[in-house]
Design a protein around this nucleic acid. Structure first.
Lengths: 216, 216
DNA sequence: TAAAAAACAGGTATTTTTATCTGGTTTTTA
DNA sequence: TAAAAACCAGATAAAAATACCTGTTTTTTA
């Protein structure tokens, strides 16, 4: 019997996965949580041995990356399977680098989820073609300048980026932050370099992808 | 017995929901599809009476809104339940206006999905507090300038907008569309006016909100 | 089917953004 | 706790985006 924990904030998706997993005779979902912090707390209180954890990236309170880093330290025997909508290579790279045992896109089919669970329990890791490819690109030095961006973006840069997303010009931003327009343009430029994009459009896309700016 | 169809492109989410629905004794998922076009085709070939359809908004080929409009004409007896990640009022408004019988966010819990299915079958409609609120705002004239925007944007403008989101400059866009840079700038300007935003950041946000550009 | 409206194509001038710089300050880390 | 790295602030020139125009062609609609 394989015991599974799942951290995923979308209730319906979570319940659906649990239903599918519990329908398999030797799989059992022992723990379910809304976010990473919840997972860590529940694990401390859990008497059962957990073999694998399905972890979402976008979660409130404690996100997937941070959660997994702590998991590696506090629960090194639990295999971490990332289950996310993000298919960009930089996510795969960041997660694998941080110690993920498997990386699955949410649009994978269930048989792959099952396969990944069995694989990580038996052989520690499960990497599909997409993941292997991302790792190759990473190793061949084709990695993005900023792996999981927001971590490497300074507070000031983040403030500027937020205001850019709110359609402010550099002058307006400088007035709101009480700095000169040139400085704002300096931050803008650093953002472009760090994120590795070409212009404002790229900055906005990055901000949305990384929840620096939330779209309504 | 209530027969249900489901159109949802995320396989895992779809399979999960189906597993949950089929676990309820008097609910049965008869039809599952990847997109709207698939749904319409399968409905034509389906000998069973479908009582309700769960429809996602973001789907390839034929999206939720277009799908539902056709459903209203060709299958007026089937109740359409929108099941989406979008919680913005303009989506609710657009969908209800187009004839949705219920609107649910994907982070609803399963009991609400079940409740909504029973409600639309018994009483045609199911609207929760959030939906009612959006409809009130709509009726009180607080609706956004562009309800589901893309309708008012020409094909050419949409092409330009897509390329803007892909971080192309006006010159690059002009080369890709075989028109002059000035023309591209003209389209850009019209987009700014129609959408009512200030700059590229606003254009990108609009494109994402209205699924003209899909973020990964 | 004419008239009207909308879409498409383009030009010019101004403003904003982007590419490269310099140097001081704060934070890491060896 | 020095040295190194990263952050913050800024300037200037070049490139790109935006504001404001004029026409032509295609679609609507009265």
């Amino acid at each position: 019997m394989i015991n599974i924990a799942i951290a995923e904030d979308q209730v319906l998706f979570r319940k659906g996965i649990i239903s599918l997993l519990n329908a398999v005779t030797d799989l059992r979902v022992v723990l379910e949580c809304n976010n990473g912090e919840d997972l860590l707390q529940q694990l401390d209180a859990c008497p059962e041995t957990i073999h694998a954890a399905l972890i979402d990236i976008n979660m409130p309170v404690l996100n997937g990356l941070e959660t997994m880093k702590i998991m590696r330290e506090k629960h090194p025997d639990i295999r971490n399977i990332i289950l996310t909508i993000h298919e960009e290579e930089r996510y795969i790279q960041a997660m694998v680098e941080a110690g993920a045992n498997a990386y699955l896109a949410k649009n994978a089919d269930f048989s792959e989820v099952e396969k990944a669970i069995r694989a990580v329990v038996a052989n520690d890791y499960y990497f599909n073609e997409q993941t292997i490819k991302a790792m190759h690109h990473f190793m061949h030095g084709k990695k993005q300048k900023v792996v999981l961006g927001e971590m490497d973006i300074t507070r000031r840069e983040r403030e500027v980026l937020e205001l850019i997303c709110q359609e402010n010009t550099s002058l307006e931003i400088s007035q709101k932050l009480f700095i000169s327009e040139s400085t704002v343009n300096g931050h803008r430029n650093n953002l472009l370099l760090k994120i590795g994009c070409k212009n404002t459009a790229g900055l906005v896309l990055f901000a949305i992808r990384h929840n620096i700016y939330r779209i309504h």
